[in-house]
Write a protein that binds this DNA or RNA. Structure first.
Lengths: 161, 161
DNA sequence: GCGCATTACTTGGCCGACCAAGGTAAAGTT
DNA sequence: AACTTTACCTTGGTCGGCCAAGTAATGCGC
């Protein structure tokens, strides 16, 4: 009676893929939680990854960003336009290649780094609450396996580094 | 050297939340994979859940759908409008309550049920390839725990059934 | 040097998903 | 019966994300 996993009864058409269903639900909840924590920093869910990369990488070509976050180029373009408008990012033409665009986190945005770091570890703790170290490691391991699986044949992960 | 989990180096700002990062990546890859499998059935990623519920539930109020898939009402409205346009769903005013709308999967869409079922189990297999039964059960268990955690305080799961 | 493929981004369109606000109808209160 | 609250959806706007197609510059082969 009270034994169903979490919140929802599984639709019968999804019986063949309970884990997939769980992944979808967890993904959405996780994204929402991340969004709430990141809202304080003025970031929308998804933008964190881009900024995290830029904070590490410094001034860099947009193509590098695209490779790093592994999103559609058009997605990155639009995200960067918005991040530029909101003052988190500076873009400038690459003098060495007139097609390319150099991207860089603004000094302003760097002030958010620690906020985002805190938010991210807080999210992790919220996500993994009640799991001991062994379980966390196991979950990380299993997710890594799953990620590998999903990369294969989907051909979304660069085979060539 | 070749020991990093999957495809990507973790940004330093995300060091405090490796599992969260993995969840995000897996979520996106999983959604993409689902989308590819479901494209054959004429469904966009996300619509599966709605249709799965309707196939089980028959003619039902829109508010029931909203509760079941646990999405924003406005999201459901728009999805249903599109699903109606594409012929997967029929909507009609509820004679018993003039605010409400009754929703129902069309006969046409029911023909897709088996396709979606197959797609979903195929997705599951693709996702969990190489994991033995114990690992699968463990992953399911851990995901359920995580889901519980994310429901708390986010107050997105109905406390009240 | 010239043409052609490749690379690098942009634009437009579409969908899922959110929030904020609005409008209507039912239910509850007095 | 009139008023207020609550439930049920819709509309409009914004974002992340995808695809398809387009533009512009570079690089490569010849």
């Amino acid at each position: 009676m009270t034994s169903d996993p979490a919140c929802t009864e599984l639709p019968s058409a999804a019986r063949g893929g309970p884990v997939s269903h769980a992944v979808s639900r967890v993904a959405r909840l996780h994204r929402i939680a991340a969004g709430k924590l990141l809202k304080g920093a003025g970031l929308y869910p998804g933008q964190e990854f881009l900024m995290m990369y830029l904070w590490d990488a410094g001034a860099v070509r947009q193509s590098e960003v695209i490779k790093a976050v592994d999103l559609d180029p058009s997605t990155v373009t639009k995200m960067l336009q918005r991040l530029e408008q909101s003052g988190h990012v500076r873009r400038s033409p690459d003098p060495a290649d007139r097609r390319a665009v150099l991207v860089e986190a603004t000094d302003n945005s760097c002030a958010l780094l620690s906020d985002v770091e805190r938010a991210w570890t807080s999210l992790e703790e919220h996500t993994l609450a009640g799991l001991d170290t062994g379980e966390r490691k196991e979950l990380a391991r299993l997710l890594a396996r799953v990620e590998e699986n999903l990369c294969r044949e989907t051909a979304d992960c660069p085979e060539n580094r």
